[in-house]
Nucleic acid binder design. Structure first.
Lengths: 131, 131
DNA sequence: CTTGACCTGATACTTAGCTATAGGGTTTAT
DNA sequence: ATAAACCCTATAGCTAAGTATCAGGTCAAG
């Protein structure tokens, strides 16, 4: 695939793809013309990058996550430790989102203010999301 | 509380607090001297901001989340709709994190590669996180 | 065999979210 | 009453992550 195709399929601009390549997030080969040649897998990688960014990861962290997928030969203990660390991190985020969700859904459902949030007596609910 | 106190208690710099005030995220009153006067609540707000950022929210979105807590008089239907939208957003994030977690924990546990990730046959696991 | 859509690298600009600096006023302890 | 530790505004600078522009090279269709 060429760069424009990948851009359309993954919903980013071509500049962004070149930028990701410079940052080592997406690999390409080159045609004789100099054109970048992407495998269809690149589309998945780019979508993964975008998803991860929305979940609060930086490009540096995402590069690490992608390296777990890239299967470096040897040194599997190190890779395993990284995967474990990332797993803990993800579970941490999930828990904090649960707290936010509970705070918000308290406002929306459990509270006895009859739908009128402006007169809700327990609106410190969101504070549970800020421990 | 004065700005330095709030900064220490919430783990950010005083510049950051002044910046948050300009962006309308943290309210203050002023002493005759011109010094900012914070309520202890500001510490919770700042921590909430930091937590939310790590979960992928921008300051603009966080301002909206905080407005749910600020109890604007009247117009509760609008506030309720916003809360509902944010709730959906949070549940969406939780789901995507679950997918990432499952992909990663597959690598770490369920896979029959005996701990050697570099020879794991099903390492497209992470792709499930990139739908 | 040229036109238009595509690609190249290099460079510069933009936005978000801070962070630092300059030049000064306030408060508190000695 | 003065030094240290705090505060003020204003302005400038920084990093991350793009986004735009320039001056060209490539390729498929007509």
């Amino acid at each position: 695939m060429r760069i424009g195709e990948v851009a359309r399929a993954s919903g980013v601009g071509v500049q962004t793809l070149r930028f990701y390549e410079r940052r080592g997030l997406v690999k390409t080969t080159r045609l004789v013309s100099g054109y970048r040649n992407y495998t269809p897998d690149a589309v998945l990688v780019v979508r993964f990058i975008k998803q991860s960014q929305e979940l609060g990861y930086t490009l540096g962290e995402i590069k690490q996550l992608l390296s777990l997928r890239a299967r470096p030969s040897g040194n599997s203990a190190e890779v395993r430790a990284l995967a474990q660390a990332k797993l803990r991190d993800i579970e941490n985020k999930i828990e904090r989102l649960h707290q936010m969700r509970d705070g918000l859904s308290h406002i929306l459902n459990a509270c006895a203010c009859g739908g009128d949030i402006s007169r809700c007596p327990t609106l410190d609910a969101l504070d549970h999301a800020a421990p």
